[in-house]
Design a protein around this nucleic acid. Structure first.
Lengths: 109, 109
DNA sequence: CCTATACATTAGTATTCACTAATATATTAG
DNA sequence: CTAATATATTAGTGAATACTAATGTATAGG
């Protein structure tokens, strides 16, 4: 069961550029291993693993072990606290949300 | 002219709980002074001023000096990088965005 | 004027944190 | 069985940072 992380955890976890880059790569790929993530990350495998642990604890990703590989994938519910936080202040950014709404109509007409 | 802060700056600025709390209070109030913000913040006026400087540099707030008071208010464009970042991944969180869309319709029918 | 008030800034400090290097654990290949 | 591969974990280190205390600057009020 994935525990819903508070907005504080999610914000803090995504604040680091390296860790956010790792997360973005996981999101873009369906499933991805640590070796692949490490490649081109600019940091060591150790650092990547530590970021993965943070992301997992924040509920942003899930992992699936298979043999000596561990496949990571994005957890859709993970960004919920961020969505909620922003929607809580939606009324103050009506214009911005309006633009986003247009985008949504294009995606899901 | 308000310089558009990169997502990195916005994320980092909002990651700190104290600073985010300050920001949230500014958003909820139309205009608010440093004294009012300091009251009940749990930190010194110095700390609040430093957070305000960060928030201002991140383009999240604007200030208006009047006499010995400085009134702070939220800058609507400030959260744009965050919106953009999230909308970039909108396709992966269609359901969440759908819920948000519903909320938008209620706000702006 | 002189004092109080509002806010910003500086210096110093303690804590957090992102990273590397080294090591541990488990799995696959030969 | 042994070596190589994949990943996690630990310890240690340097840098970033959030905070307080002290001070500076400007304005308002008596």
């Amino acid at each position: 069961m994935i525990q819903a992380a508070p907005i504080d955890t999610v914000m803090r976890t995504l604040a680091d550029p390296t860790r956010r880059a790792v997360f973005e790569r996981i999101v873009r790929s369906d499933e991805i291993t640590v070796v692949e993530l490490t490649r081109g990350s600019g940091v060591t495998q150790s650092a990547v693993s530590q970021h993965l642990r943070s992301l997992k604890q924040a509920g942003l990703i899930v992992d699936r072990a298979q043999g000596r590989n561990v496949f990571y994938s994005a957890e859709p519910k993970g960004l919920a606290p961020l969505f909620d936080w922003m929607s809580h202040y939606a009324v103050f950014w009506r214009d911005r949300f309006a633009g986003l709404e247009t985008l949504l109509k294009e995606i899901d007409p």
